[in-house]
Design a protein around this nucleic acid. Sequence first.
DNA 1: GTCTATATGGAGATAGAC
DNA 2: GTCTATCTCCATATAGAC
Lengths: 213, 213
Amino acid sequence: MRQQPVTSRSQDPKRQMGAREILDAAALAFSERGYAATSIDDVADVLGATKGRIYHYFRTKGELFIGIHRRGIEWILEAIGPTAERADLAPADKLREMVRQHALMMMEHHTYMGVGQFLIDIHLAGEGRQSAAMEEILRMRRQFEDYYVKVVEDGIKTGAFRDTDPNLVAKAMLGAVNWMHVWYRPDETRDTPEQHERIATTLADHAVYGIVA
Amino acid sequence: MRQQPVTSRSQDPKRQMGAREILDAAALAFSERGYAATSIDDVADVLGATKGRIYHYFRTKGELFIGIHRRGIEWILEAIGPTAERADLAPADKLREMVRQHALMMMEHHTYMGVGQFLIDIHLAGEGRQSAAMEEILRMRRQFEDYYVKVVEDGIKTGAFRDTDPNLVAKAMLGAVNWMHVWYRPDETRDTPEQHERIATTLADHAVYGIVA
DNA sequence: GTCTATATGGAGATAGAC
DNA sequence: GTCTATCTCCATATAGAC
């Protein structure tokens, strides 16, 4: 795989529309059957096209994978970043809202989250090592995790939270939410906004109660 | 892949010794490079052997995968089952001890946990659908998750825990611990029993505090 | 920009010697 | 029970027509 192919291609806005459709199809296929078990032809089937179309936008299967992960992380950052950077919220309220938004995003874009969130490290070892796109993704993930560590640290400083290891507790909270892609599956009949809200707030409450002093 | 090959073979205790070595190697290789990116030759390299040896014990690559997952779940059940079935513990104490033991096992056998815990569903879609071994694994996982749901329900009934959705909160707890395979990596220098204990109790405390009334 | 047709390389799996 | 040698297939990726 060559250097930074994903990023350079995605500069062109025209390309992004076709590419987005393809990423949606790939995310769906990968999340249903797994990365290894899904062929490019499978993705093409989901698209209702042939693989010629896919290879017009993505050089390799690994690039599809990176593209999915990248978008997934971007969505999470969009979900929690604005809240994380507000200065007017007490740590407990900020944390609750971050988890809530994070959880809602996990449900809204679940196909992107299942594949990306965690297979990335292990698969990239064999797929897209040290590309520029990879660096960017790792940078985003670090930032996203730092948001969690930061709010926990703040709460401990102000005395709102118990005195514990902020990094470890942040991992626990991240795990609880990221793990959603293992068990959450959209369900046409029961999947109302109210249901999503209930799930998100339940998870948020558990995370916050786990650390308040 | 044929029906129930793993289980029938593992009846023979002689076989298990050779098989165990191979599973260790495969678990290590898969956890480092990912299932898709790891070839049978890679696993053989870790073993210091050739793939002839591997195929003497396992019919397919998917069987290796199932074997790893199965053992991982068995370890977790061994870790939490005895505690979960004690009648003399208050829900909060029982839950804390379950999470603690679960977390310790995640660290002790981390190579088995990373691969198995969650890739199973998606990979098996393409590898070993509805085999007897698969059924057994799903049964064990259900039991293991039920232990968590049960203790939460008990705590809510006795009033020790907040009144919330036991299934959802159990998912959150399971996620926090299972997620360890994403971030935990053994470290020769810092990896003391005390360090493991500290990590396990921190996670256990967060899980319990998150739900106590 | 999307298709059909094709190449090719690599990995899973097997046969049979030792 | 483990090895070497080999087969076979199929998924990735490409070439080139439309």
